[in-house]
């Protein structure tokens, strides 16, 4: 069983990496970009039957820092 965890910075948290990507896109002539926010994708290969609670606990305890980040779990791909 697989799960994908998408970790993104909360709104209002400054994202210098996203800003640098934005500038680079503008430098390439893509001036349609209003904003860029960069995040992380973490792919987990899990034992079958791993509970939703366990996956959520993994996110809360380590994969995301909920002071500054949000996470979204996508299961079974």
């Amino acid at each position: 069983m697989k799960a994908r965890i998408f970790v993104t910075l909360k709104g209002g948290v400054l994202d210098p990496q996203g800003r640098a990507i934005h500038h680079a896109l503008e430098g390439l002539g893509f001036d349609a970009v209003n904003d860029v926010r960069a995040g992380k994708l973490i792919e987990l290969d899990l034992a079958d039957g791993t509970s939703d609670e366990d996956i959520d606990a993994m996110c809360k305890k380590l994969l995301a820092n909920t002071v500054i980040e949000n996470y979204r779990i996508e299961k079974g791909i």
């Binding site: 948290v13 400054l14 994202d15 210098p16 990496q17 800003r19 002071v67």
Partner: peptide, 17 residues
């Protein structure tokens, strides 16, 4: 210490990059 929760808040990438 912030990641442990012994202190509040978090340290982000420097604003200037």
């Amino acid at each position: 210490l912030t990641e442990t929760g012994l202190l509040p808040g978090a340290l982000l990438r420097n604003a200037g990059g």
